[in-house]
Write a protein that binds this DNA or RNA. Structure first.
Lengths: 233, 233
DNA sequence: TAGTGGTCTAGACCACAAA
DNA sequence: TTGTGGTCTAGACCACTAT
């Protein structure tokens, strides 16, 4: 049994209230014998869950289960698309614009690609439940994301890239800041020009380090909140 | 040599442009012989730096050094206080209010402590360089943070808690959102009521899981930006 | 003092990338 | 095919907590 599987099992146990009585996981030794794996697997599995905020280890004392994570917040630490963040909500995506352009100097710099690289430029309005949630401005490197159309862009782009294009998505740099809404975006979100906006700029990379997406996502300040776990050690 | 030390050495090498030619670290085997440690140490050290965004490993290919992280951004993933985030800037902290109060129901809930627990309530204005940067509203559990005064609150609180009180700081939950500035805070930041604000609410815990601080930090939307690395695997 | 997580060793084999 | 990182085993001792 791999440590990812063990992590999934433990997470499932937590969700079903297994360790509720003590608030602790069994000891590492117990987990080893329980699941017939070595300490390497146990510790890897636990580490995964610690990073995701499900538990924290205390040397000499045990591994403590944490209160449920903030609900309704988007995770900044790991992300697999809006649909995965809100599995219980209906997500609606409207493609405002989708066109192929040639990277000028500023886009080339932003996407870390040569000038004149073909690029998909896309604007999408995302709605969660009945709430206008965000407006996305995306640049996809067409040399990597070879094909896109409106139908795909209205579904789970993450899923498409992973399953249909067979690419391994790796990680993303995120920069978060606040600004005043411009008229165009405000109209799409049903807000007023000058209202607050919370903005996330993403640089997304494949697992092999190739950058495939640069985006600016402008969130509705009344509806979007973000969550992350910080290490202070 | 511990893996933390090895991580520090490797990070230092990166800062001095050591691996610049290839853009890669030596192989794990090389690092083992170079520093006379086992693979356990090498992989732990590398993992630390991967989580901090300094490099990414590609199976079968190598460990690639990443471009320098965003400068001028506050890290959301690991935090050791404002002074540690801006080592080259002068930080000024003005204590607007510092008082001991008794936790009412809402504060007790927020701080996860019993009602009537003594609590330090503190408001601080933080300036970075010559810029008004943020206003902090803090509740510290006085049963844990036994003593505070204005002088301490104007210095590095993080350092004080760690070095002088001898407490082990562990981790923090962070919730980030946007809102319109209220007059009181706007005045402190030199902005107008209704201007955008980017807000970070922190729940800070000791390494043993005790919550010691609940805070709301309202940042100047023109000066503060945040950075984090997200896993998309 | 006993129990628990943290660090470390010395191996082995697998999965993937590049030549 | 070779080299690289990814997973796993089976031990050992250390650091810290709780009793």
């Amino acid at each position: 049994m791999k440590y990812q599987e063990l992590a999934a099992v433990i997470k499932d146990n937590i969700d079903h209230g297994a360790y509720h009585e003590t608030g602790k996981l069994p000891t590492e030794d117990s987990l080893m014998t329980l699941y017939g794996v070595t300490r390497y697997c146990v510790r890897n599995a636990v580490n995964m869950l610690v990073e995701q905020g499900y538990m924290y280890p205390v040397q000499g004392s045990g591994i403590f289960v944490r209160e449920s994570k903030k609900v309704g917040c988007l995770s900044l630490h790991s992300t697999k698309g809006l649909a995965a963040e809100f599995p219980n909500e209906s997500i609606r995506t409207t493609v405002i614009k989708l066109e192929i352009i040639s990277a000028d100097q500023s886009i080339a710099e932003r996407l870390k690609c040569p000038e004149c690289t073909p690029v998909y430029y896309m604007i999408r309005l995302r709605e969660v439940g009945d709430k206008k949630f965000a407006v996305e401005y995306d640049y996809y490197n067409k040399e990597i994301i070879r094909y896109l159309n409106r139908e795909i862009a209205e579904g789970s782009l993450y899923r498409y890239i992973r399953n249909d294009l067979g690419l391994n998505i790796g990680f993303a740099d995120k920069v978060i800041y606040g600004e005043k809404l411009e008229k165009e975006t405000a109209d799409l979100l049903g807000l007023n020009q000058g209202d607050p906006a919370i903005v996330v700029e993403d640089d997304a990379y494949l697992a092999n380090g190739q950058m495939f997406d640069a985006s600016k996502v402008v969130y509705h300040y009344k509806h979007a909140r973000f969550f992350t776990l910080a290490d202070m050690k």
